[in-house]
């Protein structure tokens, strides 16, 4: 291979480019796309330290240091936004994370192939429903005037509840609908992990007189652990990125108290009120916290379980 020939670096690079020119043509759109739509906005994030208003140039607008960050930290909403973000995503994680695992374990115990396939097919279905339709279904079912849930409550002689407008109901509804929509889909990856467990382990266990419960405890669950830990790291590293598209569809000023998170606030202040620099600063703050979380979680996991993203 002539790549082994020791050359001046730029000459080698040129040789490589010539050798792989057609592969470079194939990959060029990808490189250009990420440059424009990911790397330029990363540069654009410097407006968080500038006084940028619509129509200005990013490069020439005035530097203002940490002004917008200070404004955010001092704002009356700061505490509420931070705690809402952590509570909503934390609770979501606690309640949603185990469901697909339990579901996969249950499916794994089913011996009738046909039933298993039907249940799986049904469970994936909600994943394909759009968020708009999902939240639309929820708000119609829960409508205090004509929703089926309140009809039922009325039949029981109870007062109708305005679920969507009631702050106390926001978190249960957000989390519950999330579970409904994703438990089946998220179980696929665990089902895949289950098929890769060595069947000899089960045979050996049976010879040793293990019952099904012991098999599950000592073979199946340990077999799922690496996958579960990987997904947990990913989820924890994404803690600050709550499903804000869904929140925007679900919340209203009546529920801002519990529903307003950092990313929805960025949307309202940054886009709706066109305060670009302030919005970018809050967004950047969110990303930084998120990144610190990801690194920390990965480090802890590497230390105690030897499993990590890198």
């Amino acid at each position: 291979m002539n790549r082994q020939v020791i050359d001046k670096p730029y000459k080698r690079l040129w040789k490589n480019i010539k050798k792989d020119r057609y592969l470079l043509v194939l990959v060029a759109p990808v490189i250009i796309y990420y440059f424009i739509f990911n790397y330029i906005p990363m540069y654009g994030a410097i407006i968080a330290f500038k006084d940028f208003s619509p129509g200005d140039s990013i490069l020439f607008s005035k530097w203002v240091g940490l002004k917008w960050f200070r404004e955010f930290f001092r704002s009356v909403y700061f505490g509420r936004l931070i705690s809402n973000t952590f509570i909503l995503s934390g609770l979501s994680l606690i309640f949603s994370f185990p469901v697909p695992i339990i579901f996969a374990l249950l499916l794994n115990e089913v011996k009738r192939k046909h039933l298993k396939r039907v249940v799986q097919t049904v469970s994936y279905l909600p994943h394909f429903i759009s968020l708009v339709v999902m939240v639309g279904i929820m708000s119609n079912f829960l409508s205090p005037s004509d929703g089926i849930i309140n009809n039922f409550l009325r039949r029981l002689g109870m007062e109708p509840i305005n679920f969507m407008g009631e702050p106390a109901w926001f978190r249960p509804l957000y989390i519950g609908s999330g579970i409904w929509q994703s438990f089946g889909w998220n179980s696929i990856i665990y089902m895949a992990a289950l098929t890769s467990i060595d069947p000899q382990l089960y045979e050996a266990a049976r010879i040793d007189g293990c019952n099904r419960w012991q098999e599950m405890r000592h073979i199946t669950i340990p077999g799922l652990m690496p996958t579960a830990i990987m997904l947990l790291i990913l989820a924890l590293g994404n803690l600050m990125n709550v499903g804000f598209e869904k929140i925007i569809l679900m919340y209203s000023p009546a529920t801002y108290n519990v529903a307003d998170v950092i990313s929805t606030y960025v949307y309202r202040r940054g886009i709706l009120s066109a305060q670009y620099s302030f919005g970018a600063a809050v967004g950047l703050f969110n990303s930084i916290i998120n990144f610190i979380l990801l690194i920390t979680v990965n480090k802890i996991s590497r230390r105690y379980t030897q499993i990590g993203l890198w």
Binding site: D20, N38, A45, V266, I271, Y276, A280
Partner: peptide
């Protein structure tokens, strides 16, 4: 055998963890 393979993969992987955020993308 593609010489730029690893470099481009890293270039892409970075975008999975960092982004400019909503506002800078909107401006772009």
């Amino acid at each position: 055998e593609f010489f730029a393979r690893d470099a481009v993969m890293i270039y892409i992987a970075i975008t999975m963890f960092f982004s400019g955020g909503l506002i800078p993308t909107f401006i772009l």
